[in-house]
Nucleic acid binder design. Structure first.
Lengths: 225, 225
DNA sequence: ACCTGAACACCGTTCAAGT
DNA sequence: ACCTGAACACCGTTCAAGT
């Protein structure tokens, strides 16, 4: 390290995230990032491995904002809820990045840190091994799944669509074919994303508390062909 | 419709899905699909709106394979479980497509159909309106979330990585910093994805059965800044 | 109405050359 | 060791022209 590198990691992250927040994922490329940093595209290869690294950089910039230090609680249910809610809050703060968070593997300390906190909280209820693993996966899945469903689910708003437009669209579906979807469309238009998430999370936490005592059939819904 | 179109929708779907299954998402482009169909890129614009439509075509080809006609059960719990498992099974059958399914909005009858079936099953437990909406969202989120966590979660395998390599990697993390993660690594290496999913789903269904009776704080984990 | 090739404005990355 | 420009092989799409 004779010379200091031209750009720091945080410099790259800030610039990249700013591009995505402003122009969307399509607005981030080797070339646009280089331009924003006032250099040529090839210079970036001294700092990142390639295009894929750019995505990871952005993901970690977002997840790194999670702060669960204040989530510590006597009741493990409250603590799991606090950490999960913080994860979800941070993810939603940069909606344009959600597709990247959903699909890019990251091994950054930030990502591992949230995971560890979540498992630790759940472990305090006395679970370990397999039960702990499943509980961890389920909470993680629910958090990311709610982000996904809001992003691309069947009841989600299209780009630039208003919530009232959603209800109109879903209600215009053939009622005999989708009787229940049209029925909950009204509820969907009224409800707010955060409230829905918190209630959904509470459902899962209630299940965690009782354990999986529901009768369980070992066979899939239909035979695997 | 003087002349029949050169390619049918299913023809396009089959060709596109075959490309993705073989070469991954990077292998699908206007140009490669055109080449596979033995024509020039511009010809495709007579059949699809543009590149984004190609992704939707592939998503719908996969989701369209879901068949929940045999999931009908007297017990609504079993029925919800059956439909959710079928969704998850279909999604996992084409792993390369998962990022698309997670991020692309689709209004196809196939996607809406599964949603309707899920809500219908849950409605049989007597819920409606908001409670029904939340239950629907939670199940949908859990299914997609499990696919996501398997694809890109902190305990998931890298491309071409063996399950035993995962345990080695996670175990090599600093134990004082990630005590619980290193602890569940062993369980993660042993367990199979389907079993994990089914157990996670059962946790949520148990929560659905009792309803959300857990005490609920209205405030987020920390004050929104 | 449907088909199609040439051309344009992008993109990531290899290669070779600079200090 | 780090920086960088030219060049290459892609990409989606506009435009204009065919039938």
């Amino acid at each position: 390290m004779a010379r200091p590198r031209k750009f720091s990691r945080t410099q790259l992250q800030t610039a990249a995230l700013a591009l995505v927040d402003r122009d969307g994922l399509a607005g981030l490329s080797m070339r646009t990032l280089a331009a924003r940093l006032g250099t040529g595209p090839m210079t970036l290869y001294n700092h990142v491995g390639g295009r894929a690294d750019l995505d990871l950089l952005v993901v970690e910039a977002v997840v790194g904002k999670a702060d669960w230090s204040h989530a510590k609680q006597a009741d493990w249910r409250r603590e799991v809820r606090g950490i999960a809610t913080e994860m979800w809050r941070v993810v939603r703060a940069h909606p344009q990045v959600i597709p990247l968070i959903l699909t890019r593997r990251s091994r950054s300390p930030a990502v591992l840190g949230v995971a560890e906190a979540l498992v630790a909280a759940r472990a305090r209820s006395g679970r370990s091994g397999r039960a702990l693993l499943v509980a961890f996966r389920a909470v993680q899945a629910l958090v990311m799944g709610f982000a996904q469903v809001e992003l691309a689910g069947p009841l989600s708003t299209q780009a630039g669509e208003s919530p009232t437009a959603v209800i109109r669209r879903v209600r215009s579906l053939p009622r005999e074919q989708f009787p229940h979807l049209t029925q909950i469309a009204a509820a969907a238009a009224r409800s707010r994303a955060e409230a829905e998430f918190r209630r959904g999370l509470d459902l899962l936490i209630a299940g965690l508390a009782v354990g999986a005592r529901v009768s369980r059939s070992r066979r899939p819904a239909r035979a695997a062909r």
